[in-house]
Nucleic acid binder design. Sequence first.
DNA 1: GTTATAAAGGTCAGAGATGGTCAAACATCG
DNA 2: CGATGTTTGACCATCTCTGACCTTTATAAC
Lengths: 158, 158
Amino acid sequence: MPNLTDYIEDYLKKLLALSSSQYIEIKRRELAGKFSCVPSQINYVLERRFPLERGYLVQSRRGGGGCIRIYRIETLHSGSWRDLISSLDRESFDPGRARQLLKRMVEDKIISRREAAIFDLLLREDLYLQASLEAEGLRLLQRELFVNALQELLKIEY
Amino acid sequence: MPNLTDYIEDYLKKLLALSSSQYIEIKRRELAGKFSCVPSQINYVLERRFPLERGYLVQSRRGGGGCIRIYRIETLHSGSWRDLISSLDRESFDPGRARQLLKRMVEDKIISRREAAIFDLLLREDLYLQASLEAEGLRLLQRELFVNALQELLKIEY
DNA sequence: GTTATAAAGGTCAGAGATGGTCAAACATCG
DNA sequence: CGATGTTTGACCATCTCTGACCTTTATAAC
């Protein structure tokens, strides 16, 4: 016999599945009302059923107009991001694709806006000018720095 | 669900983005009228969303013809760090000193641990091997990437 | 010039609206 | 029974919004 926590968990996961974005937003009071429980029950559900280790990120804001946001993110250990990163091919490292990847990672909360800005700068060719590399060498170096740094970053918790 | 403060913040930041100068000018009463709120709400928004620490400077003039000016600036804090960063550059670029700087910046919460990890990786010589640069060229390139990325980072709000 | 008035903007305290924490009570399972 | 998981409620922290009252400045009136 499922308990309240299970019902609320299911409800939230359904919302997440239906959502077109990477997250859902809820009002703690409202949700508690819908399930006829005290608001702090919601915190309990979030803590137990939506922890970072299971691939969820919860953010909240207090005060008027406050709310709770639940993000679905890839777990750091799932390795799917790592695969994507390595797939930035050795032969033809494409800064355009790299930028695409950065964008997605920011959207999915895998990296921050600021972190993305650093990586983006690694793709700026003009910074490499003085090294007077050939086009091929430039790409190889960019890839080496970009990919290694990104993989390193994923090992560190937020 | 955004609240009034969010709407006003967005509005002002859009104005700033569109402005060709470093600042925008508003009339408190007018703006309050546009958003149907009391004038002091505007002060609240300015205080909460445009503080010095986030890189904004607010000046105002009372009396007839008075107005409020909002400047987008470099934060004072990052300003002094900027000097330190450029000083890395004077003599030959020294990765050891660069690491020291990173450490201090993390301690002072100017950059995050994760961000520091990226910069630290930029200092790893082995990643540059394939480019077969001379020692001098390597330092120059490292400096170029390191210093530029760090300076870029300081322009972005946390 | 001095004074009065109107037209700005500033401050602050309090009410209201959220969400967070924690410990105790309760429940379930082994 | 003991361990673990759930539920509740009292109390706390933070953010937003409003309104009464205050300060500064330009300018018109004298």
